Computed example of a mutant assay.
Amino acid sequence: MTTRWLIRLEILLSIGLVLGCLAALAGLAMTAGMAFFGTPVGVGIPLRLFDVPVEGMAAAGATVGDATAEVVVRPEGAAPLAALLYLLLWGPGTATWLLCLLTLVRALHRARSGDRALFSAVTAGHLRRLGWILIAGSAVSAVLGMIAEAILSSMLLTESHPFYLPSSALLGSVVAGFAALGVSEIVRRGLTLLEEVEATI
């Protein structure tokens, strides 16, 4: 009864992991097609535009400030360099989340065997690994994404910027990584105290 929710959560995350792997493979196939055969209709590279014209959009008594928009650009013909940069734009973030899901599935699979398996040094290790995957993966994704987006914008748009801020989702991932590290430390110290109490009995 205690582990029923763990089993359901493991099944749900396992399904998410399988679907994520299939989506990543589809993304790789699409990126390879972009490199060697051209970009299919309806598919493209998402890029950000700044200082979008907003004349005539504001109602009476209101003004519109700086506007930012996202456009999908489709390179014409085979574009190996654009495909490589596009892979750097989405690949590291996708790999980070797939590794996170795999770590969580492994941790839940072990935790199903009982409460002592849930609160164990192995679980603390999984949480520590999850935290570092989120922190390091988000940092790498942010750096590579900023570089790739800047180069792609200079290649595919008439106006580009030398620096693009990473998305707020990456900042949230870093915070979640530090939270996982904190929980792993709590579990580790709790196990140490439990071992000391058991040793004195």
Rank of each mutant, 00 (worst) to 15 (best):
L87Q: 12
A148T: 06
A121I: 11
G27C: 03
L191R: 03
P75L: 11
L47M: 09
L99H: 05
L17Q: 04
A199D: 09
R188V: 02
V73D: 04
L191Y: 00
A69R: 13
L9E: 10
V143W: 09
S168A: 14
R110S: 04
S141A: 13
L13V: 08
L88V: 06
S160D: 11
S173L: 08
G91L: 07
R8I: 14
R112G: 00
L181F: 04
R4L: 15
L102G: 07
E196R: 15
G16K: 04
T103Q: 08
A26W: 09
T39L: 01
A24H: 05
R116C: 07
P162V: 05
I11A: 15
L99Y: 05
F178S: 06
R129F: 13
G44C: 10
G91E: 06
L87F: 13
G93Y: 02
R128I: 03
L156K: 02
A29H: 14
L144Q: 03
T158G: 05
Y86T: 07
V183W: 03
S141N: 03
L84G: 03
F178V: 05
I45W: 00
R74H: 11
L99G: 05
P166Q: 11
L194V: 15
I186H: 11
A169M: 08
S113N: 12
V41N: 11
A139C: 12
L47G: 00
V52R: 10
W132H: 05
P40E: 09
P80C: 10
I147Q: 06
P166E: 14
L157C: 07
G61F: 14
I45V: 01
R8N: 13
V183S: 02
A79S: 07
L165W: 12
V175G: 05
L157Q: 05
I186W: 05
R189M: 10
I147R: 12
S168G: 09
A29E: 02
W97S: 02
S154L: 03
R128S: 08
L101P: 03
L12E: 15
T31I: 06
T96S: 14
S141Y: 00
A142F: 02
S168K: 10
I11P: 03
P92I: 06
A169Q: 13
I11W: 12
P166C: 09
V122H: 12
M57D: 14
V122D: 15
